[in-house]
Simulated assay, not measured.
Amino acid sequence: MSPLSLDLWWLPRAASLGLLAFVIFGPLGNLLLWAFTEKWYYPHTLPLEYGLSFWSKVFSARGNALESLSNSVLVACLTVLLSLALAVPAGYALARLKLPWRGAILLAFLIPQAFPNLTVYVNIARLFYQIGLNGTILGVVIVHTTHGLVFAVWIATAAFSAVDHELEQAARSIGAGPLRTFFDVTLPLALPGLMASAIFVFLESLDEFTGSYFVGAPDVNMLPLLLYTAGSGGNYQIASITAVLLLIPSIGFMLFVERFLKADVLSRVGH
Score class of each variant (00 low, 15 high):
residue 258 E to D: 14
residue 200 F to L: 14
residue 77 C to I: 15
residue 154 W to C: 03
residue 4 L to K: 05
residue 79 T to M: 00
residue 150 V to C: 09
residue 67 E to K: 08
residue 184 D to N: 06
residue 99 L to F: 05
residue 270 G to Q: 06
residue 30 N to S: 13
residue 160 F to C: 01
residue 259 R to I: 00
residue 123 N to L: 06
residue 73 V to W: 03
residue 53 S to Y: 09
residue 24 I to F: 06
residue 52 L to E: 02
residue 223 L to A: 06
residue 144 H to Q: 14
residue 162 A to F: 05
residue 235 N to H: 12
residue 106 L to K: 08
residue 66 L to A: 07
residue 62 R to A: 12
residue 117 N to M: 10
residue 113 Q to T: 07
residue 16 S to D: 02
residue 239 A to I: 08
residue 25 F to L: 15
residue 108 A to G: 14
residue 266 L to T: 02
residue 259 R to F: 01
residue 51 G to R: 08
residue 151 F to C: 04
residue 164 D to Q: 03
residue 177 G to K: 11
residue 124 I to L: 15
residue 39 K to W: 02
residue 54 F to G: 06
residue 64 N to Q: 14
residue 46 L to W: 02
residue 79 T to C: 12
residue 39 K to P: 00
residue 218 P to I: 08
residue 181 T to P: 07
residue 35 A to S: 14
residue 263 A to N: 07
residue 269 V to M: 12
residue 250 S to C: 10
residue 186 T to V: 12
residue 230 A to L: 02
residue 141 V to S: 07
residue 156 A to N: 01
residue 47 P to E: 09
residue 23 V to H: 00
residue 39 K to R: 15
residue 49 E to V: 02
residue 86 L to K: 13
residue 10 W to A: 11
residue 167 L to W: 10
residue 253 F to A: 13
residue 173 S to G: 03
residue 227 L to K: 05
residue 157 T to G: 14
residue 1 M to I: 02
residue 231 G to I: 03
residue 161 S to P: 00
residue 183 F to H: 09
residue 107 L to Y: 06
residue 233 G to C: 06
residue 106 L to P: 06
residue 34 W to C: 01
residue 27 P to R: 11
residue 247 L to F: 12
residue 14 A to T: 08
residue 100 P to E: 07
residue 169 Q to F: 03
residue 81 L to I: 15
residue 48 L to S: 13
residue 243 A to F: 00
residue 204 E to H: 12
residue 229 T to L: 13
residue 104 A to P: 07
residue 212 S to N: 06
residue 231 G to E: 04
residue 65 A to D: 00
residue 143 V to A: 15
residue 168 E to V: 01
residue 43 P to V: 09
residue 250 S to G: 10
residue 58 V to P: 00
residue 239 A to E: 04
residue 2 S to A: 08
residue 103 G to T: 11
residue 147 H to M: 15
residue 33 L to G: 10
residue 16 S to F: 06
residue 207 D to Y: 05
residue 210 T to R: 07
residue 158 A to S: 11
residue 138 L to W: 01
residue 23 V to A: 11
residue 202 F to Y: 02
residue 173 S to M: 07
residue 248 I to V: 15
residue 68 S to N: 09
residue 200 F to Y: 07
residue 53 S to P: 03
residue 236 Y to I: 10
residue 184 D to Q: 11
residue 62 R to D: 14
residue 156 A to D: 01
residue 185 V to K: 01
residue 196 A to C: 05
residue 137 I to R: 11
residue 49 E to H: 05
residue 211 G to F: 10
residue 84 L to E: 08
residue 103 G to E: 08
residue 104 A to L: 13
residue 65 A to L: 01
residue 247 L to K: 07
residue 135 G to L: 09
residue 217 A to S: 10
residue 60 S to H: 04
residue 209 F to V: 09
residue 134 N to T: 12
residue 178 P to S: 14
residue 34 W to K: 13
residue 41 Y to D: 01
residue 169 Q to M: 13
residue 260 F to N: 09
residue 107 L to C: 07
residue 213 Y to L: 15
residue 101 W to P: 00
residue 2 S to N: 15
residue 51 G to T: 03
residue 160 F to K: 02
residue 248 I to Y: 09
residue 161 S to M: 04
residue 250 S to V: 11
residue 224 P to I: 11
residue 36 F to H: 04
residue 124 I to P: 13
residue 191 L to K: 12
residue 57 K to T: 08
residue 182 F to L: 15
residue 137 I to H: 12
residue 146 T to F: 14
residue 266 L to C: 03
residue 238 I to K: 00
residue 156 A to I: 04
residue 139 G to Y: 03
residue 19 L to V: 12
residue 39 K to V: 08
residue 228 Y to D: 09
residue 248 I to N: 04
residue 270 G to L: 06
